[in-house]
């Protein structure tokens, strides 16, 4: 069981990459809005979509950790 907990902790480390990616996405989106405020509606929906896609990386790690703990 202890080893399974360590494995689950390692699986959740995917959040690091997702966090970096989301930070870069948000910063570039803000640059884009600052440069072209009238396009903010379109940029906003693209931002939400790409954040969701990046978030899924973190979610995969989370699902794997859950499977290790509860189904392993």
């Amino acid at each position: 069981m202890e080893l399974a907990a360590i494995g689950a902790g390692l699986a959740v480390l995917t959040g690091v990459g997702a966090g970096i990616g989301m930070g870069m996405t948000a910063s570039h989106a803000m640059d884009a809005v600052a440069r072209q405020p009238e396009a903010s509606g379109k940029i906003n929906s693209l931002l939400i979509l790409s954040l969701a896609l990046i978030e899924s990386i973190a979610i995969y790690g989370f699902v794997v950790a859950l499977l290790i703990i509860f189904a392993g």
Partner: peptide, 13 residues
């Protein structure tokens, strides 16, 4: 696969 896992993971979280 990715759509199912993403929805499931978010809701379970």
């Amino acid at each position: 696969v990715s759509m199912a896992c993403r929805l499931f993971g978010n809701m379970v979280g």
